[in-house]
């Protein structure tokens, strides 16, 4: 009995976590490379292609370089907070991956069902939202503890930006939750499978509001005022070496997390398009698992490409424009949309 508990509640989840973390780290490392190469292509360049075939070992080289760099702490900085801030920024996106479900449950030969998730929590989407707002602590602490005014300005910009865009983001996610009737991510996907249409159709407005505010949440290019690589000075100006790498990886982990969350909410997640999954699952469960996982991966890749595409295309917003769009355009639209979706749910979706 005791060994059974050990296997079910400690060994099995630990293996799952190890596999998930390894996969996420690899994806995060390689999305950086893919982004750099694609940005090169968008600008008639080739991008990094020197290290290894097609530049595939570039992430290893980058990581090694950042790891071997000197770890500088400015004299004016508050050393304790300065050291702890990257961790605040680093861990929320990685925790967020735990609640994602990657395929329909695996049926073991003994008849047991195993979820393709580390923890399919019944408040999964809420957990991700709250963790994404926790990430802002890392940015504020980093900016404040650097002991320099420009990082502080950067972190303050970031704070009000995230506050402005968190509300439309949450409201558009709430419309999905209303349609699905559950906070659990696997339930949201199952609802789309049983309704036989994706939530992007009734929630098209919510989808676009979500897309815009999610780009702002992850501090990506049209809204990358907290960081502002090219002209304005961002919150991690004083950081170098491994601590900078933590911020860098946190940003890209956030991107990967959002790229995997968006299909689950709006495009049916691991649902296979043009096929009745739940019917097929009764006869060929393993086939549906594999195909479902592949379709989920394809949808996520689509969104990752979309992110990079947007970054290559649009110039940065001015700060007042950014807040104006957030508060006076997206907020009322998402509120109206919530009302609309409620009506749709009430009259059209039984």
């Amino acid at each position: 009995m005791n060994s059974q508990i050990l296997i079910n509640y400690i060994a099995f989840p630990l293996i799952k976590i190890a596999i998930l973390l390894a996969a996420v780290f690899t994806v995060v490392a390689y999305i950086v490379l893919v982004e750099r190469r694609l940005l090169g292509f968008f600008q008639s360049r080739l991008g990094p292609n020197r290290v290894g075939p097609l530049g595939l070992i570039q992430p290893v080289a980058d990581g090694l370089k950042l790891f071997l760099k000197e770890d500088l702490i400015p004299t004016n900085a508050n050393p304790f907070i300065f050291k702890i801030a990257p961790i605040f920024s680093f861990f929320p996106p990685f925790v967020g991956f735990a609640v994602l479900t990657f395929a329909l449950p695996l049926i073991m030969p003994s008849g047991k069902m195993h979820q393709f998730a580390v923890a399919d929590v019944d408040l999964g989407i809420l957990l991700i939202l709250s963790l994404s707002s926790l990430g802002i602590f890392g940015i504020i602490l980093a900016g404040w503890s650097s002991g320099s005014k420009y990082p502080l300005f950067g972190s303050l910009r970031s704070a009000s930006q995230m506050l402005a865009y968190e509300i439309p983001l949450t409201l558009s996610v709430i419309s999905v939750i209303m349609m699905a009737g559950s906070f659990r991510l696997s339930d949201i996907v199952t609802a789309q499978q049983t309704y036989k249409f994706y939530f992007i159709i009734p929630g098209i407005v919510a989808f676009f509001v979500y897309l815009i505010s999610v780009v702002a949440e992850t501090n990506r290019t049209p809204f990358d005022l907290p960081e502002g690589e090219s002209e304005i000075i961002g919150f991690h100006t004083e950081y170098s070496g491994m601590r900078f790498a933590f911020f860098f990886m946190a940003e890209y982990a956030n991107v990967v997390l959002i790229c995997m969350l968006t299909p689950a909410l709006f495009l049916g997640g691991y649902d296979i398009p043009f096929l009745n999954d739940l019917e097929l699952y009764k006869t060929h469960p393993y086939l549906v698992n594999v195909l479902g996982f592949l379709s989920y991966a394809a949808k996520s890749t689509l969104f990752a490409y979309f992110y990079i595409w947007i970054r290559a295309t649009f110039p940065r917003y001015r700060y007042d424009q950014l807040l104006k769009v957030g508060w006076s355009v997206l907020f009322p639209i998402s509120l109206l949309n919530l009302f609309l979706v409620a009506l749709i749910k009430l009259f059209l979706m039984k």
Binding site: L38, F41, F42, W309, T313, F314
Partner: peptide
Amino acid sequence: ELIKGLSVTTKYLFKKKVTEE
């Protein structure tokens, strides 16, 4: 405007690259 911008970048994605290796 946004769609126009996105289409321009897509055009450049498939253009011949100018980099000399």
